[in-house]
Amino acid sequence: MTGEYAARVHGEAVPRERVEAFLRGSSTTPLRGAGNCATSHSAPAHDHGHTGALPKDRAAQAERQRRRWATQVVVIDELARRTCAERGLPAPSEVCPAAMLTVAESDVADLGSIVAAALAHSPAARALLTALESDQHIPEEAVRDYYERNRDRYLTPDALRRGVDPFGTATEPTDFLPYERARDGIGRELRQAAGRWAFFGWLDQARTGVEYAPGHEHPGDPSHPDHEHRH
């Protein structure tokens, strides 16, 4: 690796030390994930939680991928800080140390390991996601449609015990949680989903101004031979 930066954002350097500091705080390999920002590694790397037990060439590959993964997390934090400043959003300057990162498996599955880790690491990214969620307007028709299409989610405990088929004809209105009681929860879920899609759209656009230093490219970048990018 050359230079003292891991990436440049619109020409401004993101110091390599920020990535190294993130790596020093973490003894584990990136989480296995899914989605556009996921990166995965061979099973031994996940099983051992470090690269020392791997053959030398595989250990080197795992370490390269780990650095690239960490660079993405740090770059998302930098992009989110800038966007929060542009939008006038308050965002704490401190980030969560990598050693203290806890990422729910469901978030990894839904968001991909990079975005999930960035949201756990970066207050700015969380503040931006919250703002994007609050921007979403979910029409009443969409909420009602979700309720009608997902009737199985709103069976009452008694109906579940009786084994009621939520999509069958032998159901009663009392077998289901009333729409009025389910409405607010559905609205929150749909706003969260729409906010996440908005966050992905923001990130795709924000990344167009990023240039990575050699050795810090996205772990799924097909231009380097050991890329890993799974959906």
Score class of each variant (00 low, 15 high):
Leu111Met: 10
Ala159Cys: 04
Ile76Asn: 00
Val108Asp: 07
Val14Met: 06
Thr130Asp: 09
Val115Thr: 11
Ala45Tyr: 01
Cys37Leu: 15
Thr130Val: 07
His50Thr: 10
Pro97Arg: 11
Ala53Ser: 09
Leu128Asn: 04
Ala127Tyr: 02
Gly220Asp: 12
Ala70Cys: 05
Trp202Ala: 13
Ser27Asp: 14
Glu4Asp: 15
Glu4Val: 08
Leu111Phe: 13
Ala182Thr: 12
Arg196Glu: 12
Glu4Trp: 10
Asp47Cys: 05
Gly187Ile: 10
Ala127Lys: 03
Ile186Tyr: 09
Ala120Tyr: 13
Ile114Val: 14
Gly35Arg: 01
Glu217Phe: 04
Ala13Arg: 14
Glu141His: 06
Ala43Phe: 10
Arg153Trp: 09
Arg183Ser: 10
Leu54Ile: 01
Ala104Gln: 04
Ala213Glu: 08
Leu190His: 06
His48Gly: 12
Ser42Gly: 04
Leu190Ser: 05
His48Pro: 01
Val115Glu: 10
Ala116Asp: 02
Ala193His: 10
Arg126Ile: 02
Arg87Tyr: 00
Leu79Ser: 03
Ala131Ser: 12
Phe176Thr: 14
Glu86Ile: 02
Val95Glu: 01
Gly195Tyr: 14
Asp145Ile: 08
Pro92Gly: 00
Ala80Cys: 01
Gln136Trp: 04
Val19Ile: 12
Gln205Gly: 11
Ser26Glu: 08
His216Tyr: 15
Ala80Pro: 01
